[in-house]
Design a protein around this nucleic acid. Sequence first.
DNA 1: CTAACCTACAACCAAATGGTTGTAAGTGAG
DNA 2: CTCACTTACAACCATTTGGTTGTAGGTTAG
Lengths: 111, 111
Amino acid sequence: MSDVEADLVFHALADRTRRDIMGKVGEREHSISSLARQYEISFAAVQKHVAVLERASLVTKRVRGREKLVGGNAETLRRASRLLARYEQVWRHRDDAITRLLNERDERTES
Amino acid sequence: MSDVEADLVFHALADRTRRDIMGKVGEREHSISSLARQYEISFAAVQKHVAVLERASLVTKRVRGREKLVGGNAETLRRASRLLARYEQVWRHRDDAITRLLNERDERTES
DNA sequence: CTAACCTACAACCAAATGGTTGTAAGTGAG
DNA sequence: CTCACTTACAACCATTTGGTTGTAGGTTAG
């Protein structure tokens, strides 16, 4: 997952309204209007949130008549999940006392 | 993971400099100065990035003499990873043709 | 002791964000 | 055909963000 991609995805996830939308469109597709009706904010605001999710490839839109149905893109979600998992794995290595001691030595001789 | 928590964590992850810092401090602890020396931006800017990561509980600081060592907090990372995994699981259900057909019916009778 | 180093924090700035309202255009129901 | 519905997008506003410089306080090395 590229830096730009991660920027877009994590920024998209960093808003609770957008995460909420993610939850809904993951279960089944929703038109933008039907989504907008479920929030206090304006239609345009919801539309913008969907656009942010779409730029991040977290959702996709398809046309049905005069409306557009928004659905979740599980693939992107999986890639983001993988990125976090990679950090997690590396980090586990650091968690024992031995590496901590090594760190002390390394820090002292650093730069 | 609460909404506020997720807001902080995903916002913290949505910047490539901060993700880069995550990579470094996950392997071993780094002082803020030693981190700052590794980027083009000012010391204060790096300090702010670390503060954002700290507010999100993605890293912790401990004192060693006149410096503060920044280290990764694997626990928070795990919780974020879990949240994404939960979305992922729900989303998988939607991916077969049958649910798509059901959606069409549901959408038509909706609201 | 003193000078160098490390951290903290305030004040400031330009750009991006999340929200609003308003306008325009396509589609479908009746 | 016409009117209501759905989407798109521009313009605007307040707040936040990521960056800067400057100042001040602690700690340690020599």
